[in-house]
């Protein structure tokens, strides 16, 4: 039987959760015995090659590209997991949610102390994804099956959850492994 596939992505995140996944250390050898990585920064596969058993989503949605990728993950993955505080509650990027979008853009592209932008226009190249009015947690955009909060969730948290799911066991993490910091 072919190994189940796993896909990962970082949306409005810092890749810290991916670093935490690498922090499972030598267990990564066991992980590649259990799964095959599909679309993921881990193996640099850019497009889904088929159906995935598990999708790990780091980060929330701050622009339309994040929304597109998240919906693509939902379409291709049987189980979709929000990994980290940014995916579960918006995280640091969501600090802008209490500030009106125009104020954020003005600070970033017009008034900021280190900004050099003589015509005072916001970047509007069609290649740049449109920014959303605020940062959304993943589950406010698509259905999410499991949440692993933490900044980042520890390597043990990610490992225990993945091993449980890959063995068709319920994800029942001990008290010490579910933390918001």
């Amino acid at each position: 039987m072919a190994k189940p596939k796993i896909a990962t992505t970082s949306l409005a995140g810092c890749f810290g959760c991916h670093m935490s996944l690498l922090d499972i250390d030598e267990r990564i050898l066991e992980l590649v015995e259990l799964v095959e990585f599909d679309k993921s920064p881990v193996d640099d596969i850019k497009n889904f090659t088929g159906r995935c058993a598990i999708g790990l989503v780091e980060g929330g949605c701050c622009n339309e590209h994040n929304v597109d990728v998240l919906r693509e993950f939902r379409r291709h993955c049987d189980i979709l997991i929000s990994v980290g505080d940014c995916a579960t509650m918006g995280g640091i990027p969501a600090l802008r949610n209490t500030v009106p979008l125009r104020e954020c853009l003005d600070e970033a592209f017009v008034n900021g102390p280190s900004v050099h932008n003589p015509d005072g226009k916001y970047p509007d190249d069609p290649e740049i994804p449109l920014i959303l009015d605020k940062v959304y947690p993943a589950h406010e955009v698509v259905k999410i099956d499991y949440f692993l909060p933490g900044c980042p969730p520890t390597a043990d948290t990610l490992w225990e959850a993945l091993v449980a799911l890959l063995n068709d066991k319920p994800v029942e993490l001990p008290y010490q492994l579910v933390k918001y910091d």
Binding site: M89, G90, N97, K134, P137, I144, F147, P149, V178, Y180
Partner: peptide, 15 residues
């Protein structure tokens, strides 16, 4: 929240 095993709230964030 830890004691009740809450991993994410079901309500939308108000910010």
């Amino acid at each position: 929240a830890y004691r009740f095993g809450i991993t994410a709230p079901k309500y939308p964030y108000m910010f």
